[in-house]
């Protein structure tokens, strides 16, 4: 069996804040279409890893390669256009914009066709194919009913879904999902797992999932990476890593 060339390849990632080391020498791969869980106790450095991959933090050392390309000091928006999407632990929605507009904007950016003359001539209204695609994603994520509501009027859990929809509407090749289930109840989490599974199966989207909800991780990921104190302490299938004593100690608190 040949392993496909990895979609994302993180090598020796290190980042510290002031004196505290948040991430130290972290290396892992994510293959195309694969979904990988990144788990670990609070403060293990999971969100920092995501931010370094997405260019929102600059690592002190190490490299991030995406589709065989070294990302180096590339700006976040360029990484997004290469096909990385992200949802955030602290939601980053556009408060005054309606849910549908969130998706339309994300779709427009993907086709990067903002031209001043087109705006001035009034030729930038949403096209039928865009609207259809947006409706499709709204339906998948279950936001159709709030499509016309500004994000500021939505609860925290719904805002997370808006972020998810905004990230996947442009069909990224890799989705960095940072605690997408927090604020959702058990049934909604189950539906979220179904959505992520569908996307992975039908669109070949790879997912890097940072999550505490054991059910969601178990349901979605092919493979899990466990971090503690900024280091990778285990990796393998979810069942394997959960069986390791070091993981049980650090994460589940079982001696």
């Amino acid at each position: 069996m040949t392993t496909p060339a990895p979609l994302l390849s993180v090598r020796g990632l290190t980042k510290s804040f002031g004196g505290a080391v948040a991430v130290s020498d972290v290396s892992f791969d994510v293959a195309a279409g694969e979904s990988v869980g990144l788990i670990g106790p609070n403060g293990a450095g999971k969100t920092t890893v995501c931010s370094c991959i997405f260019g929102q933090m600059r690592p002190d050392a190490g490299s991030v390669r995406f589709c065989g390309r070294e990302l180096g000091r590339l700006a976040t928006w360029r990484r997004a256009r290469l096909g990385i999407g992200r949802t955030y632990q602290r939601v980053e929605v556009f408060p005054e914009m309606t849910v549908r507009d969130h998706l339309l904007v994300a779709l427009r950016v993907r086709h990067h066709d903002a031209r001043l003359w087109r705006d001035l001539l009034g030729r930038s209204a949403p096209r039928a194919d865009e609207l259809a695609r947006v409706e499709e994603v709204l339906e998948i994520v279950g936001l159709s009913e709030v499509a016309e509501v500004p994000a500021a009027a939505l609860g925290l859990g719904t805002c997370r879904l808006v972020e998810l929809a905004r990230a996947i509407v442009a069909e990224p090749r890799l989705l960095l999902a940072d605690e997408p289930s927090s604020g959702l109840d058990e049934h909604e989490t189950r539906e979220l797992a179904a959505v992520l599974g569908t996307l992975q199966a039908t669109r070949g989207m790879a997912v890097l999932l940072v999550e505490h909800d054991v059910f969601l991780v178990d349901a979605v990921v092919d493979r899990a990476i466990v971090m503690d104190l900024g280091r990778v302490i285990a990796s393998g299938t979810f069942g394997e890593v959960m069986a390791e004593p070091a993981v049980r100690r650090a994460y589940l608190g079982v001696p």
Binding site: G142, E145, V146, V149, A153, L154, G155, T158, H187, R190
Partner: peptide
């Protein structure tokens, strides 16, 4: 019964669905 078409449970309630989120 809040399952969406893609949801695990599948079945849809007969009553019209009301938007979720507090802004509805």
């Amino acid at each position: 019964p809040r399952g969406r078409p893609q949801g695990a449970d599948g079945a849809m309630p007969a009553e019209p669905r009301v938007p979720r989120g507090r802004g509805w």
